Deep mutational scan, measured.
Amino acid sequence: MATGGRRGAAAAPLLVAVAALLLGAAGHLYPGEVCPGMDIRNNLTRLHELENCSVIEGHLQILLMFKTRPEDFRDLSFPKLIMITDYLLLFRVYGLESLKDLFPNLTVIRGSRLFFNYALVIFEMVHLKELGLYNLMNITRGSVRIEKNNELCYLATIDWSRILDSVEDNYIVLNKDDNEECGDICPGTAKGKTNCPATVINGQFVERCWTHSHCQKVCPTICKSHGCTAEGLCCHSECLGNCSQPDDPTKCVACRNFYLDGRCVETCPPPYYHFQDWRCVNFSFCQDLHHKCKNSRRQGCHQYVIHNNKCIPECPSGYTMNSSNLLCTPCLGPCPKVCHLLEGEKTIDSVTSAQELRGCTVINGSLIINIRGGNNLAAELEANLGLIEEISGYLKIRRSYALVSLSFFRKLRLIRGETLEIGNYSFYALDNQNLRQLWDWSKHNLTITQGKLFFHYNPKLCLSEIHKMEEVSGTKGRQERNDIALKTNGDQASCENELLKFSYIRTSFDKI
């Protein structure tokens, strides 16, 4: 039985969820670079991206490699990797027998973001014989899940209580170790020597080791999670996991709180800001991140802002960003909400898709409305799209047979046209069989910064309504002859009103 693990408890099935942008060198404390989270699957090609990484700022997932063999891993080693800020997950990587050479110096898994409450997941690794993470000293947050690894031993010899604050939620089941077939031998045991430290858990006094050649490092209890030197002297209180010299914040392997210019500090002093819960960055760093993602459509890219001495992905609820200094300031009234469309555009074809934009005031991208039916549609669209004030790209209304009016965009005031449909149009209306009105132009103002209007096959939309939009939106004169079809717009509506004058002759039985 794995020490510190839980057996036999019912657990939810383990679901495996399925960018080499360097964020800056980590400095003297770390020998390499800070790398983003990685999802490495199918083959070993991307694994080489770990070569210079000291910190993975995010998670590391290595999974679904069915053609790899043990010899493929023999020359692979990433000794610079010290810390993973989120979680480490391995799933069905064939041929991998140990992690001792792959990650010989991995010391800390912070667990800032977890995989279903777990910071370390080893699942269905069919050839893994031992973990071998002999320098792993601290899992700051989260638990361990090690399950269905039929060859995995050296679990009962690990004292997880020396690595985690609590072992109650560890789930370590259905491994070879369960069948008591392992016969784990710690260093020196074969020669009758006791080389590794022994600890007591559940009444068992057991030597602690990761492999037959690597003991588990056990520091004096007084050192807590700070770690200790090879001689057993406690590291500085700002260290986490390990250090090369005692009581020196510049000799830590990793930091308990924050890293700044080669030393570990309790908090980031001005003019620095907390970033990702582990390091200090200056304003320029946060500003660069903001600008890199301002026009990016890459998933996970955030326009970072500053709030409460932190550089964070977005302002919290009730705050909006001051564009001059990136500071989050309290909103006066309802907060603006910028919604970034991942692929640059979004099609609204149902109430469900409209709900995804609920509360958005600025759309960074283009909207395509293609709704053919739905219950209580006008009210639903207004509830979900009615706060949109600005669209950076274009607005396209296409084959939306259920629409009679666009009044559900009740606050839309600006279409920038930074991206144009077919390279020309910022407003595009095609084949809307029941569209009769755009907006009530006596109450609604709309500016279209650039781009043209396109109207074709809107049989109940009168040309007068379209011409009014040209005047109000500032697009009059931009359109070419064929942009607004004269014969297919309003051709099934009563669009022309003329005053009919009647004269009559009164007659009676005795007068003409």
Results as ranks from 00 to 15, higher is better:
Gly58Gln: 00
Asp159Glu: 10
Asn42Leu: 00
Cys235Gly: 01
Leu114Met: 15
Asn195Leu: 15
Ala190Cys: 08
Leu131Phe: 02
Gln276Ile: 05
Asn242His: 11
Ser161Glu: 10
Glu180Thr: 07
Phe123Asp: 00
Asn149Pro: 01
Gly188Trp: 11
Ile82Val: 07
Leu90Arg: 01
Glu97Met: 14
Leu106Lys: 00
Leu120Glu: 00
Val144Phe: 05
Leu128Pro: 00
Val108Met: 06
Tyr319Trp: 03
Ser324Arg: 07
Gly300Cys: 08
Val265Ser: 09
Leu50Asn: 00
Gly37His: 03
Ile146Tyr: 03
Ser77Met: 12
Asp165Glu: 10
Ile56Asn: 01
Leu128Gln: 10
Phe283Pro: 02
Thr194Ala: 13
Glu124Lys: 00
Cys293Ala: 08
Leu133Lys: 00
Gly227Arg: 02
Leu155Tyr: 01
Asn257Gly: 06
Thr250Pro: 03
Arg208Pro: 11
Glu231Trp: 10
Gly37Tyr: 03
Ile163Ala: 00
Leu44Met: 10
Arg41Trp: 00
Lys80His: 08
Leu164Asn: 02
His127Lys: 02
Arg69Gln: 10
Asn179Phe: 06
Thr211Asp: 10
Leu29Met: 07
Leu90Ser: 01
Pro270Lys: 11
Glu124Gly: 04
Cys280Glu: 00
Leu174Val: 11
Asn150Lys: 07
Lys310Pro: 01
Ile163Gly: 01
Asn295Leu: 11
Asp72Trp: 03
Ile312Arg: 13
Asn195His: 14
Leu326Val: 14
Lys191Gln: 12
Gln299Val: 13
Thr250Glu: 11
Val55Leu: 00
Ile109Val: 08
Phe116His: 00
Glu33Cys: 10
Leu164Gly: 14
Leu60Trp: 00
Asn52Leu: 08
Ser112Met: 15
Gly241Arg: 03
His212Arg: 15
Cys264Met: 01
Phe275Thr: 00
Ser284Cys: 01
Ser112Asp: 15
Gly300Asp: 03
His307Lys: 05
Glu314Asn: 08
Asn257Arg: 10
Thr199Glu: 12
Asn117His: 01
Pro36His: 15
Ser317Met: 05
Cys209Val: 04
Pro271Met: 12
Pro316His: 03
Ser317Gly: 12
Asp248Asn: 06
Pro334Lys: 12
Asn242Tyr: 06
Arg263Cys: 06
Tyr118Phe: 02
Phe123Gly: 01
Pro316Gly: 07
Lys148Val: 01
Cys243Pro: 00
Leu289Glu: 04
Thr68Ser: 12
Pro70Leu: 09
Val144Gly: 03
Leu50Cys: 01
Asn295Val: 05
Leu89Met: 15
Ile146Phe: 08
Pro220Asp: 05
Leu326Gln: 12
His226Pro: 04
Cys209Thr: 03
Leu99Ile: 07
Arg145Pro: 02
Ser324Ile: 01
Thr229Met: 10
Leu233Cys: 02
His59Glu: 00
Lys67Pro: 01
Asp247Met: 05
Pro220Arg: 12
His302Thr: 13
Ser237Thr: 08
Leu326Trp: 06
Glu168Ala: 15
Thr157Lys: 06
Glu238Tyr: 07
Asp86Tyr: 03
Phe91Asn: 00
Ile82Met: 10
Leu260Phe: 03
Met83Glu: 10
Glu130Arg: 09
Val144Leu: 05
Ile56Ala: 00
Ala156Pro: 04
Tyr304Gln: 06
Cys252Pro: 03
Pro79Ser: 06
Leu29Gly: 11
Cys328Arg: 01
Phe66Ser: 00
Glu130His: 08
Phe258Ala: 14
Cys239Arg: 00
Cys209Lys: 01
Gly333Asp: 15
Gln245Ser: 07
Cys209Pro: 03
Arg92Ala: 02
Ile201Tyr: 09
His212Pro: 13
Thr229Ile: 11
Lys129Ile: 04
Asn170Tyr: 07
Glu49Leu: 11
Glu168Met: 13
Phe258Leu: 09
Asn308Thr: 08
Pro70Ile: 13
Lys148His: 06
Leu60Ala: 02
Glu238Leu: 07
Phe103Leu: 07
Lys217Asn: 14
Leu64Trp: 00
Thr229Glu: 06
Met65Glu: 05
Gly262Ile: 03
Met137Asn: 09
Tyr304Ser: 06
Leu128Ala: 06
Asn175Met: 04
Gly32Glu: 06
His226Gln: 07
Asp261Leu: 10
Asp277Glu: 13
Cys264Thr: 00
Ala119Gln: 00
Cys223Tyr: 02
Val144Asn: 01
Gly203Pro: 07
Leu174Asn: 05
Lys251Leu: 07
Met137Arg: 08
His212Ala: 10
Cys182Asp: 04
His290Asp: 03
Asn42Asp: 02
Ile306Phe: 14
Ala254Thr: 11
Ile172Leu: 14
Ser161Arg: 09
Leu60Pro: 01
Gly32Ser: 06
Gln299Arg: 15
Ser213Gly: 07
Arg113Ser: 02
His48Cys: 05
Asn52Arg: 14
Cys311Ala: 13
Pro330Ser: 14
Ser296Thr: 14
Arg279Glu: 01
Asp247Ala: 11
Met137Ile: 14
Leu63Ile: 00
Lys224Trp: 04
Thr85Asn: 04
Leu102Trp: 02
Thr250Ile: 09
Tyr118Met: 00
Leu64Tyr: 00
Pro79Ala: 08
Asn325Pro: 04
His236Glu: 12
Tyr134Val: 05
Ala230Trp: 13
Asp247Asn: 06
Pro330Arg: 10
Pro31Leu: 12
Lys251Val: 05
Asp169Gln: 13
Gly203Met: 07
Cys196Glu: 10
Asp178Ser: 09
Leu90Thr: 05
Lys80Ser: 10
Gln287Gly: 12
Leu152Lys: 00
Leu174Met: 12
Ala198Phe: 08
Ala190Ser: 09
Glu231Asn: 09
Met38Asp: 00
Phe91Arg: 04
Cys209Leu: 01
